[in-house]
């Protein structure tokens, strides 16, 4: 097990590159998803206000 994480001495380089990739990619995905949720909420709010002012 320790040997697997050591990766023949290259462990720190390998694990940090995969870790950075994982963090950056999930960060991008989450940021995009939060933005989508925010815009959905805004549209819902504005449309509700539009129908209210019409009635």
């Amino acid at each position: 097990m320790a040997e697997f994480f050591n990766m023949g001495g290259y462990g720190p380089y390998i694990w940090s590159s995969f870790l950075i990739a994982a963090v950056v990619m999930s960060g991008l995905a989450l940021q995009s998803w939060f933005d989508l949720r925010k815009q959905k909420r805004l549209v819902a709010e504005l449309e509700a206000r539009a129908t209210k002012s019409q009635t």
């Binding site: 990766m7 001495g9 390998i14 590159s17």
Partner: peptide, 14 residues
Amino acid sequence: QGDSVRIMFVHVPA
């Protein structure tokens, strides 16, 4: 290159 070649699996697709 030994195990360090595994970094390629992030580097090349990116």
